[in-house]
C-alpha cells in the first residue's frame, strides 16, 4: 500500500472536485451567503440580554424579515434593530419568551401576517414549532455549537456551494436535497409545487430578495403557486385564544415599561384576496388592536406604504423595502412610537 502517494493524489482529486463543484454552482447562479439557521438566530437573540429601553426588536414572519431593512431603520433613528422575525411562522412563541424570560423593556415591533399570526397555539403546528425550536436552541446551544457557527460564517460567506437550508428549498444543493430530487413519482400523490429560495441574509439577518424574483416573472410565479397551495391547505384561523395570549403578555410587558407596535405589511394579488376572504381586516386586525389596546400600523392606511406591488404577492423587492422602511420609520417617529437617538 503506497499510502503517501494515495493520500496526496486523493487530496489533489478532492481539491479539483470541490473547485469544479464551486465553479459549477456559481455558473448556475448560486451565491455565497449565510444560512438563516438556528445558530445565527440564536446569536441575534443573545443580544437581548444586554439591551436597553432604547433598543428595538423586530418580530414576525417573513414579511417583517423582508420588508424591514435594518440599515434604513438605523439611518433614520441611530438604532439598529435586532431582527428576530422567522420565516413561515408566528411571532408569538418568541414574544412569550422575551416577556417571560428576559428583562428587556424596549420596543418590540410585531409583524402580523394574518394567516400565520392567527394559527393554533399548539407546538405541533409548523408555524409554532419553527420559532419554538429556535427559542429552545438559544437556551440549549452548546459551546461547541457556538464555535461551529463562528467557523461556518466565513466559510458560508466564501463558498456558493455551502447553501443548505433549514427551509429545504427545492433548489438547495446539499447532497440530501440533490438525492431527493433524483426521482419524482406519484406514490404519495403530493401536490405541493416546488418552493425555490428567493432571498439571502447577512450577519444581522437583514434580508435581501434575490434579483430573479423581481426580474423573472416565471420564477416569481413559482412562489405564487406555493402561496396558493398554502392558502388552499391552510387550517382555520384561531382568533380569541391568540388575542388572549397577547392580552396577558402585553399587560406583563407594558407593566415593566415595554413598548409594542403591531405592523401589517403589504401583500397583493391572490395572497391579498385570500387574506381578505379568510381573515378580514375588521374581524382580525382591528379586533387585535382593540382588545389588546396596542398601537398598530396597517399599510393600507398610509399612501406611502400602500404603493408597492410585491413581485410574488407577499414580500417587497429589496429596493422597495428600503424606501418602505424609511417611510415607515418616518411615520413611527412622527407619532413618537419608537425611540430616536438622532
Amino acid at each position: 500500500m503506497q499510502l503517501k502517494k494515495t493520500f496526496f493524489t486523493a487530496l489533489l482529486l478532492f481539491i479539483a472536485g470541490i473547485v469544479s463543484w464551486e465553479y459549477y454552482c456559481l455558473e448556475q447562479g448560486y451565491i455565497a451567503a449565510l444560512n438563516d439557521d438556528l445558530a445565527i438566530w440564536a446569536v441575534q437573540r443573545s443580544k437581548l440580554e444586554n439591551m436597553s429601553q432604547q433598543d428595538v426588536v423586530i418580530l414576525g414572519s417573513s414579511r417583517a424579515h423582508f420588508d424591514i431593512q435594518l440599515d434604513q431603520w438605523e439611518a433614520k433613528t441611530g438604532i439598529r434593530p435586532v431582527m428576530l422575525a422567522c420565516d413561515g411562522s408566528t411571532p408569538t412563541p418568541i414574544f412569550q419568551d422575551i416577556v417571560n424570560n428576559t428583562d428587556f423593556n424596549g420596543t418590540i415591533v410585531i409583524g402580523v401576517t394574518p394567516g400565520l399570526f392567527f394559527s393554533a397555539p399548539v407546538e405541533q403546528v409548523p408555524m409554532w414549532k419553527r420559532p419554538k425550536i429556535r427559542v429552545d436552541h438559544y437556551y440549549e446551544r452548546t459551546w461547541a455549537q457556538r464555535i461551529n457557527h463562528l467557523i461556518s460564517v466565513p466559510l458560508e460567506n466564501t463558498f456558493a456551494f455551502l447553501n443548505s437550508s433549514e427551509e429545504e428549498w427545492a433548489d438547495d444543493i446539499d447532497l440530501k436535497s440533490m438525492i431527493k430530487r433524483m426521482y419524482n413519482d406519484d406514490r404519495l400523490n403530493e401536490s405541493m409545487p416546488p418552493f425555490y429560495n428567493f432571498s439571502y441574509i447577512d450577519i444581522d439577518r437583514n434580508t435581501t430578495m434575490l434579483d430573479k424574483t423581481v426580474n423573472d416573472t416565471a420564477f416569481a410565479a413559482t412562489i405564487q403557486k406555493v402561496w396558493m397551495y398554502f392558502g388552499k391547505n391552510a387550517p382555520p384561523p384561531v382568533k380569541e385564544p391568540i388575542i388572549n395570549i397577547y392580552k396577558d403578555m402585553l399587560a406583563k410587558y407594558n407593566s415593566r415599561g415595554g413598548n409594542v407596535i403591531f405592523l401589517r405589511l403589504p401583500s397583493s394579488g391572490g395572497f391579498r384576496q385570500g387574506e381578505n376572504m379568510g381573515l378580514p381586516r375588521d374581524q382580525f386586525w382591528e379586533q387585535l388592536l382593540a382588545e389588546t389596546n396596542t398601537p398598530g400600523y396597517h399599510f393600507e392606511d398610509y399612501k406611502v406604504l400602500n404603493q408597492y406591488d410585491p413581485p410574488e404577492w407577499s414580500h417587497l423587492a429589496t429596493p422597495d423595502a428600503k424606501i418602505f422602511t424609511t417611510d415607515l420609520v418616518s411615520i413611527l417617529l412622527n407619532d413618537k412610537a419608537i425611540p430616536n437617538l438622532q
Binding site: M1, A10, F161, K176
Partner: peptide, 28 residues
C-alpha cells in the same frame, strides 16, 4: 482490501468520500 487494490483506485475512492462529505453539508 486497501492493500489489494491499485493505489490510484484507492485514491479515487478516498477523494470521492471527501467530496461527498463536503457536499453533504451535514448539520452536525
Amino acid at each position: 482490501v486497501a492493500r489489494k487494490i491499485p493505489w490510484w483506485l484507492f485514491s479515487i475512492f478516498w477523494a470521492i468520500m471527501l467530496i461527498l462529505l463536503v457536499i453533504a453539508q451535514g448539520s452536525s
